[in-house]
Amino acid sequence: MQEGGATDLRMRVIKWSVKLKVNPRAVRICQMRRKWGSCSTKGIITLAVDLSDREPQFRDFVIAHELLHLRYPHHGRLFKAVMAAHIPNWRELEILR
């Protein structure tokens, strides 16, 4: 991944943070073998470096998913409803995960 990919991911995180009204403590972009992203209990969002190589819709899905965990730690009914409101086809995108 080129530096521009990390910059694009960070810009998308900012865009989605404003949209979802959340404020991550930090955003890290690094190598991840098993996941595209994660959200720590301390509010740190970590994204896989190669996420920038995926299509924009999938990037937005992963970013929105992780940012929503700042408000909803589990994948409960409310989490799923808010995901559906912002990314209507999130269930199809989740299969690609």
Rank of each mutant, 00 (worst) to 15 (best):
N89R: 15
R10I: 14
R28H: 13
L47T: 02
A84Y: 01
K42E: 13
T7M: 11
E3R: 14
I95Q: 13
P73H: 07
L20K: 02
R59S: 04
R59C: 06
V62A: 00
L68C: 06
Q2D: 11
V82I: 13
R77D: 14
I14M: 10
F58D: 03
D53H: 12
G4C: 09
S38L: 00
A6L: 14
A26Q: 11
H86Q: 14
T41I: 07
A48C: 15
D53M: 13
V49Q: 10
K80G: 06
R33T: 12
R91K: 12
G43P: 03
V13C: 15
V82M: 07
I95S: 08
H69K: 05
R59E: 14
M1H: 12
E3K: 11
P88Q: 15
R34C: 02
R97E: 13
A85V: 06
Q57H: 13
Q2Y: 09
G76M: 08
Q57P: 00
I63N: 04
A84R: 14
Q57R: 12
S17G: 11
L9R: 05
L20D: 09
V49P: 01
R59N: 03
R71H: 12
F58N: 02
A6D: 09
W36T: 05
I29K: 06
A85P: 00
G76S: 09
G37H: 00
R77A: 15
V62L: 05
N89H: 13
R12C: 04
L9G: 04
N23F: 05
G76W: 11
D50I: 00
R25Q: 10
K35G: 00
R54T: 11
T46G: 09
R71I: 13
P24D: 03
E55W: 02
H69A: 04
S38E: 01
L93D: 03
